[in-house]
Amino acid sequence: MTITIAPTEHGVTRIAQLENVQVRFGKGENTFLALDRTNLTVRAGDFVAMVGPSGCGKSTILKLVAGLLKPTDGMVFVAGREVGAEQVGIGMAFQNPTMLPWLTIRQNIMLPLKIVKPYSDTFRRDKDTVFRERADALLAKVGLTGFGDRRPWELSGGMLQRANLCRALIHSPKLLMLDEPFGALDQFTREELWAILQDLWMETKPTVFLVTHDLREAAFLASRILVMSARPGRVTEDRAVDFPRPRTLETTFESGFTDLTNDLRRMIFAARQGV
């Protein structure tokens, strides 16, 4: 197990790093390259959005960083250590909210506290006091006050996705992985949740990896957008987004914003032509 110390550069910690990473899926003759010679360095506090044609390996990068997947070749470092070396307690949210139906919304949200240290050590003692308050405070921030005792099936898709964000953030993770979290929601709910997610992010500034198909979503939320080529995926464009925060829906009507999304659209179109 290689352990490297997190290198610092101008006082900023690199929280995740991919070195010449290659991922190959399948066995025998049916293998395909999902990710090829990918290099990527992400600084702590970055909000990285990944866009690209479908099947280009966006989610693969997410899974690599989360330690759910081992690279076929190359190295993945998270918080300076090779992935898998230590429990990092990464927060994760998918398009499917996956709330457990036998638990209340509050119990669902508190689940990470049961697993991630140091919270898990005192879970029994704190679950009805400190942790409960923590969950309720988070629920209030996403506009779900009073829904803590409800069961998942009593909530709408948009409400479940709010709860899902709470569950991903309850343990104040340093890394947050979002795989098309708002993909199944209507436009209005989605835009509302962008603002909420931005507020939550600005509070603790975790490093975020967001996979999305929605270019406006990427431009609204991210501080850095990675455009990926069609399979095998490679990062073809790495663009900083510096609209001032907090961004509002007004921001999305500004010419700089529309120019950016149009640029991204052109790049992805070009990437798809390259198949």
Binding site: A66, G89, F94, H171
Partner: peptide, 12 residues
């Protein structure tokens, strides 16, 4: 539910 398991594994 693979996604739920991923969420838990990512948490460690």
């Amino acid at each position: 539910e693979p996604e739920m398991e991923d969420v838990l594994k990512a948490l460690g």
